[in-house]
């Protein structure tokens, strides 16, 4: 078991750095199956990954706002859920949802701390600039990369090494109605992610119409996401064309009204 924990810790380190550099694995659905594979339960990994993916759908860093840390949250919650529930995928998913929230939020605080420590890089960068030292700039990323990796790896190791037993007894002690409730919650909580997306996207009142369209296409007509997206592209194209034309038309109308005004004046 210790060996497995070390492997997961290493993965946390690598994915931690990936999150701020190549950004190839930064979604729960891409991380959880890997953890499931290592712990020998790919099916549970898939189910947890899919649930967390949807739950955190609208969550992401926007501007300087730091979102809950999905990387650490997914790794710790998936590992602990699979380690402490014996085979039942439903219980594993319910456990993972419950653990994902506190772990993501706690891990987020560490990232805030790192961005604060990283402020010291500015004076290093200025020194390099003063000396016109281009070769030296190569090393700028290594201390913060180690720090970011460690910020994911250390909490993962601590949580898995010391937490597994505690979580197992907690899951065993939970009454069934709580587990059932958490399973149901897993399919309702995605509303938060979707509402967050809406918050970012509904900039004008008229845009609500597209939300209604999408809802109707899917709920009444039962269209899948892919055909839905293709139809959406058609609507988007014409909406963009119309808004551009009306904007141009409004300008044109102003000019022509000016012209008629002048003509009347001439008469």
């Amino acid at each position: 078991m210790t060996m497995t924990i070390i492997v997961i810790t290493l993965i946390a380190f690598i994915l931690g750095i990936d999150d701020v550099s190549t950004k190839m694995f930064r979604r729960p659905l891409l991380i959880a199956p890997i953890i499931g594979f290592i712990l020998g339960d790919v099916q549970a990994g898939l189910a947890i990954g899919a649930t967390l993916e949807i739950m955190w759908m609208g969550i992401g860093n926007v501007g300087a706002y730091m979102a809950p840390d999905l990387i650490t949250g997914t790794i710790i919650s998936t590992s602990l859920a699979i380690m402490s529930t014996n085979g039942s995928i439903e219980t594993a998913v319910a456990t993972a949802i419950t653990l994902a929230i506190p772990t993501s939020i706690l891990a987020q605080q560490l990232l805030v701390l790192i961005q604060t420590i990283n402020v010291s890089l500015n004076s290093w960068a200025k020194r390099l600039a003063d000396n016109a030292d281009v070769k030296g700039t190569f090393w700028l990323i290594y201390p913060p990369a180690l720090l970011t990796g460690a910020a994911r790896a250390v909490p993962t190791f601590i949580a898995l090494y010391f937490g597994a037993g505690a979580i197992q007894s907690a899951v065993d002690a939970l009454p069934t109605f709580v587990i059932n409730g958490l399973e149901t919650a897993g399919s309702i909580i995605p509303a938060v992610g979707i509402a967050l997306l809406m918050l970012a996207m509904l900039k004008k009142f008229e845009l609500w119409m597209f939300l209604i369209l999408g809802f109707v296409f899917s709920s009444y007509l039962g269209l899948d996401i892919l055909p839905m997206t293709l139809i959406a592209i058609v609507f988007a194209y014409f909406y963009e064309m119309i808004t551009r034309k009306t904007a141009a038309g409004a300008n044109g109308a102003n000019e022509s009204s000016k012209n008629t005004g002048e003509e009347e004046y001439d008469l």
Partner: peptide, 16 residues
């Protein structure tokens, strides 16, 4: 933005 909103509208009924 339009594509995204239509997808979000569809997700409301498929995912939640």
């Amino acid at each position: 933005n339009v594509v995204g909103l239509m997808v979000v509208g569809a997700l409301i009924s498929t995912i939640i």
